[in-house]
């Protein structure tokens, strides 16, 4: 059970003056139950890549296998793939359209041809999973806060019971608490339901706090694929391609240079705190 991407290339508008090679020989494999971060500068190919994962965009060359089956096979059931690999776009709340929240979340499963009871059960479960209280179910989606709207939009995808959940910058424009709420909710889905999560983000701090593995894209090329700790030791190379490390990583490097013996691979505030305390107490 996994997603395998084998040497895919994607070129926009082939044969015109606007031809652009957006993905170049990208290969990767994502196993069941992973929590993967996908980072890269704007225009690096992240969004194009994730749109390949559920067949919204077809590679110019190369193949994608989902659970061992070639998704480009003539008789492959693309509709089935799209319900198993759920994609939450940027600003998903712009896609809310129903008169109340519950109906909005029902829309996806209803289109799967399920019975009314099953549809409503799924919507109910999905809204519960993202922490929307029942008293809000019959309110207009437009009366909610930014973070709540976004969670409702995610529930709409969860109601399809995806095996893989892809989120494209789910925290853009949210306040810090709203960011944490969304990401904690995603983490819970990952831990409790075993959903595979692919998180596209511009926030290095968020990626460092949540994911187990990071894939770095640069100009359509997969540049790094490693654990967060290993990735962020390359902070100078990351800066050269429009990225960075979390601020704590820079702090730890400064401290080390100043002669305080701390662990420079710390990437969260918690890890940094432990390491500094150890170093200072030893020095005292």
């Amino acid at each position: 059970m996994s997603l395998i991407v084998d040497k895919i290339n994607y070129t926009y508008e082939i044969g015109t003056g606007f031809e652009r090679h957006a993905l170049k020989d990208v290969s990767l494999a994502i196993e069941d139950g992973e929590f993967v971060g996908l980072i890269g500068h704007t225009g690096s190919g992240k969004s194009t890549l994730i749109q390949h994962f559920n067949g919204l965009v077809k590679a110019t060359s190369g193949t994608i296998y989902y659970n061992g089956q070639d998704i480009y096979d003539k008789d492959y059931n693309m509709k089935d793939l799209r319900s198993k690999v759920g994609l939450v776009f940027q600003y998903p709340e712009h896609q809310l359209f129903e008169t109340d929240i519950f109906k909005d979340v029902c829309f996806g499963p209803k289109n799967l041809g399920l019975s009314k009871k099953d549809v409503e059960l799924r919507a109910f479960e999905a809204l519960r999973m993202v922490g929307i209280p029942e008293e809000l179910f019959y309110q207009s989606p437009f009366d909610l806060s930014g973070g709540q709207k976004r969670r409702v939009a995610i529930a709409g995808v969860l109601a399809m019971k995806p095996e893989v959940l892809i989120l494209d910058e789910p925290t853009a424009g949210l306040d810090p608490k709203g960011r944490d709420e969304i990401l904690d909710c995603v983490k819970k889905l990952h831990e409790e339901m075993g959903i595979t999560v692919i998180l596209v983000s511009h926030s290095m701090e968020d990626v460092a706090n949540y994911v187990d593995r990071i894939i770095v894209m640069n100009d359509g090329v997969l540049t790094y694929d490693d654990t967060p700790k290993n990735i962020f030791t390359h902070y100078r190379e990351l800066e050269a391609i429009g990225l960075a490390a979390p601020q704590v990583t820079y702090i730890m490097n400064d401290l080390k240079q100043a002669g305080i013996n701390v662990d420079t691979t710390a990437i969260t505030v918690e890890e940094a705190k432990e390491s500094v305390l150890r170093a200072v107490r030893k020095g005292m």
Binding site: P176, K177, V248, I251, V269, K273
Partner: peptide, 18 residues
């Protein structure tokens, strides 16, 4: 207030608390 502080401020605050 649903806000935060920069990571360096947070780290300093946590170290002070410790």
């Amino acid at each position: 207030l649903r806000l935060d502080v920069p990571q360096v401020t947070e780290l300093a605050y946590e170290l002070k608390k410790a």
